[in-house]
Amino acid sequence: MSGHTEAEIKKHVRTYIAVFAALAALTVITVAISYLHLSFGPALALALAVASVKAGLVALFFMHLITEKKAILWLLGFTVFFFIVLLTIPPLFHH
């Protein structure tokens, strides 16, 4: 990545450290929630919510999606759509 100034990189590094701290904290939180032994529905919702935030942080900052080019966002958009189709439709109709 050309065109990064020293100050920008320093800012980036600070962001990475902050994201790391957030990921560690969220890991502790999600484990703590599991010790509450909630019923399945809320437990699932909370676990997935925390995991999604963590995944979002990794994707946006470590994988730079927050500043990524359109071509890649389009590719991922389609992929996520088909991922959701694959994840939701099969379990919907056979129990």
Partner: peptide, 18 residues
Amino acid sequence: WHFVDLVWIFLFPILYLL
């Protein structure tokens, strides 16, 4: 490498915590 991390971020709660 981040993707491998990301997969684990989902695997961990789904397999271990639920």
